[in-house]
Design a protein around this nucleic acid. Structure first.
Length: 498
RNA sequence: GGGUCGUUAGCUCAGUCGGUAGAGCACCGGGCUUUUAACCCGUUGGUCCUGGGUUCGAGCCCCAGACGGCCCA
């Protein structure tokens, strides 16, 4: 048993070697029959005496998180997916050899299985009194420090498995995220929306103003783009007669990393024929209340120390009104393109010559208003110039029937009445193509194939996209997207550097 | 891109004025048959992010860089 090496990893390898000598070191024959939380619920209230009089046989398994060795008897704390349970291992119960192995070959972080009877300790903790205790998996690397856990944010993202082993809060975040996605599906399924999967690889990137990732198909010898949005494909399905569709899946945008941006992120997009953007705002309110009820058990959440209540009707403000209210600038000045350009320059916005009134308004809104929209707010009447796929407003040709939802200063949803006039859509694409030729990297492509679909007739339709990661952030009080994405993109994790 | 803070043992972190590199946990050895972040005793473990510079002497001061956190654009 003597070994000069004091290196922990080497010690664990040595122990694994000894385990191999005893037989199968990584058995897959042990079957857990009881979870920690189930045992606590069923037997936690029973007295020490009651458990001693009527023994309950249990079989538990989990990772060894704590170990307290007291000579010829020991306590270990196992953690299974439901929670923790303590086990009492005694030499007199498991035998001389078994106990020696337990003492000298087991480490924190190993996975073990224990059979025995339930007991209560003198301090009242429900405990499995082991009759057999076996090591099922030897961990060759040590766990992070047992009390402080893994605090370094970067290590938590890079080694998410460790984060999940050690940080209960981190596990909770991803459980809540899963409940959120389940609730989204239920919401749309119950209302007759068909769940679909549209291509991730597009011959022409479309559906959003964003730079795409490019990849190459060898057999076809053609470039493909990872989708920036599923929009144009979902609308083709509406043309095809699937009048209510939704898709929950990944989008990819070739942009920088930030607390709010991961290159791949998840959205739910949904389309509904014979509806307009007002219907969608109503539906969105309903959706949010139902999600919060399901996931948070109420109508309000706490985010970054502030209470955000989705109970009351969500106010709907026109973009110009919102900008005027936030900046004190008269709405009449905002409506004048020349005047608005001066205002934007006065805010240190670097105005590009190609920008018209709509883009100017959007930039001013983003610079001055967006971050202040803490309570849920719908901003409506987006400029046509920045909404190339949205239906033109009947009241003002510079505007569209479009809204975005803001919560905690973040954009959560974007929806509009769809432009279903193929000729107008062709003109809008032409304008985008012009901007692209002039160097706008985010301008859209001219998509003839999509136009052909529109020419077959798309019913009057409204569509919306909601950021699932951002909803998850709200519901888990996470201020960075990295906390709600299991494996976020980090610097220096690339493969080949060229 | 700018500002700012940080990088020291496997993990969490100290490190005073520039003078031999520290603690807790983990690991190793010993003790302990109802413990609770068990405890007690004794060990082990270091590319102080990297490269220059100043100095008799640098974890500490200076310069440059890398990586990361946070804030801002």
């Amino acid at each position: 048993m003597s070994d000069d090496s004091r290196n922990e990893a080497e010690q664990r390898r040595r122990k694994l070697g000894e385990l191999r000598c005893r037989g199968e070191a990584y058995p897959n024959t042990f079957r857990r029959e009881d979870l920690a939380v189930d045992l606590a619920n069923a037997y936690g209230e029973l007295s020490k005496q009651a458990l001693a009089e009527t023994p309950v046989e249990v079989t538990v398994a989990g990772r060894v998180m704590l170990r307290r060795v007291m000579g010829k008897a020991s306590f270990i704390t196992l953690e299974d997916p439901s929670g923790r349970i303590q086990c009492y291992v005694r030499r007199d119960d498991v035998g001389e050899e078994g106990y020696a192995d337990f003492r000298h070959l087991w480490d924190l972080g190993d996975i073990a299985g224990v059979r025995g009877t339930l007991m209560k300790t003198n301090t009242g903790e429900l405990t499995v009194h082991a009759r057999e205790a076996g090591l099922l998996v030897k961990a060759l690397r040590p766990l992070p420090e047992k009390h402080h856990g893994l605090a370094d944010r970067e290590l938590r993202y890079r080694h998410r498995h460790l984060d999940l082993i050690v940080n209960e809060e981190s596990r909770d975040v991803f459980r809540i995220r899963a409940r959120l996605v389940t609730a989204l599906r239920r919401f749309f399924d119950e209302r007759g929306y068909l769940e679909v999967e549209t291509p991730m690889m597009h011959p022409i990137p479309g559906g959003a103003a964003a730079r795409p990732f490019v990849t190459h198909h060898n057999a076809l010898d053609t470039n493909l783009y990872l989708r920036v949005a599923p929009e144009l494909y979902l609308k083709r399905l509406v043309v095809g007669g699937f009048e209510r569709v939704y898709e929950i899946n990944r989008c990819f945008r070739n942009e920088g990393l930030s607390p709010r941006h991961n290159p791949e992120f998840t959205t739910v997009e949904f389309y509904q024929a014979f509806a307009d953007y007002v219907d969608l705002m109503d539906l969105t309110e309903e959706l949010l209340r139902e999600l919060l009820q399901d996931v948070a058990g109420g109508t309000s959440i706490t985010f970054e120390g502030r209470e955000i209540d989705f109970g009351p009707a969500i106010p709907r403000r026109r973009m110009t009104t919102a900008v005027a209210a936030e900046t004190g600038i008269a709405e009449a000045d905002l409506l004048d393109e020349t005047r608005l350009g001066e205002i934007a320059r006065g805010m240190n916005i670097s105005v590009e010559p190609d920008w018209g009134w709509g883009r100017l308004l959007m930039e001013v809104f983003e610079a001055r208003v967006e971050a202040n929209l803490v309570a849920p707010t719908f901003v409506t009447h987006y400029p046509l110039e920045v909404s190339p796929l949205a239906r033109k407003s009947a009241e003002d040709p510079r505007l569209t029937d479009r809204f975005e939802l803001f919560v905690a200063g973040r954009e959560i949803a974007n929806g509009f009445s769809e432009l279903n006039d193929p000729e107008e859509q062709a003109d809008r694409f032409a304008r985008q193509a012009e901007l692209k030729d002039r160097g706008d990297l985010e301008a859209m492509h001219y998509d003839k194939d999509f136009l052909a679909a529109l020419e077959h007739g798309m019913p009057p339709t409204a569509g919306e996209g909601i950021g699932v990661d951002r909803l998850a952030m709200l519901l888990t009080d996470s201020s960075t997207i990295r906390d709600v994405v299991l494996f976020p993109q980090l610097r220096g994790t690339g493969g080949d550097e060229s």
